[in-house]
């Protein structure tokens, strides 16, 4: 006699947490933070309820694009060590379920953001979801080593959306925040690709390390970090900057440049000796780098009403 628990479909039945994992909660955290900073750095104030709802809907939109990405990339996720435990390759969620969840939540989040904030913010969110799910995941990721460079724009749109939620329009400051994330993404992921040695090779994803080699990747990291440092410090002189931001930016960028220079000086033999220590340190610093830059912008905006933030 067959017991009901012997059927794989029943034993592997997805829990709520598995659907939540499809939405890439760690990416959602970053999105929530950068949307909040974009919204509060804007010169116009937002009603707290409207602001809360708008951020929630942007986070749901980001989660939806994450689910669509996991649906499309399930085959390569299964090959890569870093992603093999994601809900679809782990057999917890069916690919069709991820697709349905992604499409449904995309529609819901865009519609609700339009109602809660404004149509321009909703259009920008729709474009961001399209950019991440279609342009990055479907077109670029497996086709070009520039996947990370161009695809990084998807992660850079949230502060612009936050700004539009507050003001209903674009501005130079919003695009400075966009460029900060856009320029930060390539060195961040290339450092990861350097020490996650075989992952991208196994999955045949054309990362720069695979197509142009590791010495070229090291040169690219240094070049992008120099450009990023100029931009990050330059942002300090704009309307969203101030003494606090400028101090944070100068200190962080000195350390970031030193890290990139160290990576550029090394070769694979040196890196293997200490198990990619410099690359790992640079990657860890890059996480703090973005958080602290946006934290400083937030602090400037929060202190401004008391005459302390900004110039």
């Amino acid at each position: 006699m067959t017991d009901i628990t012997n059927t794989p479909a029943v034993t592997n039945e997805a829990q709520l947490g598995d659907y939540f994992a499809l939405m890439k909660p760690r990416v959602m955290q970053l999105v929530v933070f950068t949307v909040l900073v974009g919204m509060l750095a804007a010169p116009t104030s937002v009603h707290p309820v409207v602001g809360f709802a708008a951020i929630l809907f942007v986070a749901i939109g980001a989660g939806a694009s994450g689910a669509l990405n996991m649906w499309w990339d399930a085959d390569i996720d299964a090959v890569m060590r870093r992603t093999s435990k994601r809900p679809i390759p782990a057999g917890k969620v069916e690919p069709g379920e991820a697709l349905a969840l992604g499409v449904a939540l995309s529609g819901l989040s865009v519609m609700m953001l339009g109602l809660a904030a404004n149509l321009l913010a909703a259009a920008m969110l729709a474009f961001t979801i399209f950019f991440y799910a279609v342009i990055y995941s479907m077109w670029l990721k497996r086709a070009t080593p520039q996947n990370i460079v161009i695809g990084g724009a998807a992660g850079a749109f949230p502060p612009v959306i936050g700004w539009i939620i507050a003001t209903g329009s674009f501005s130079v400051e919003a695009w400075l925040m966009f460029t900060l994330i856009f320029m930060w993404t390539p060195p961040h992921f290339w450092a990861l690709a350097l020490f996650m040695r075989s992952d991208y090779d196994d999955a045949e994803v054309p990362m720069l390390t695979v197509t142009h080699g590791r010495p070229s990747t090291r040169r690219h990291i240094l070049a992008y970090t120099v450009l990023l440092a100029i931009l990050a410090v330059g942002t300090g002189f704009s309307a969203i900057g101030g003494y606090i931001y400028l101090s944070v930016a100068v200190i962080l960028n000195v350390f970031f440049l030193m890290g990139a220079y160290r990576i550029w000086q090394r070769d694979e033999v040196m890196a293997e000796v200490d198990n990619y220590l410099a690359e790992r340190k640079f990657f860890r610093l890059s996480l703090y780098y973005l958080f602290l830059h946006f934290g400083a912008i937030l602090l400037e905006a929060t202190l401004r009403p008391w005459g302390l933030g900004g110039w």
């Binding site: 009901i4 628990t5 029943v10 039945e13 829990q15 709520l16």
Partner: peptide, 14 residues
């Protein structure tokens, strides 16, 4: 069955 308990948790969450 145990599966009913798990589904109950999911349904309450939704």
């Amino acid at each position: 069955h145990e599966i009913h308990g798990r589904r109950k948790g999911r349904n309450i969450g939704v």
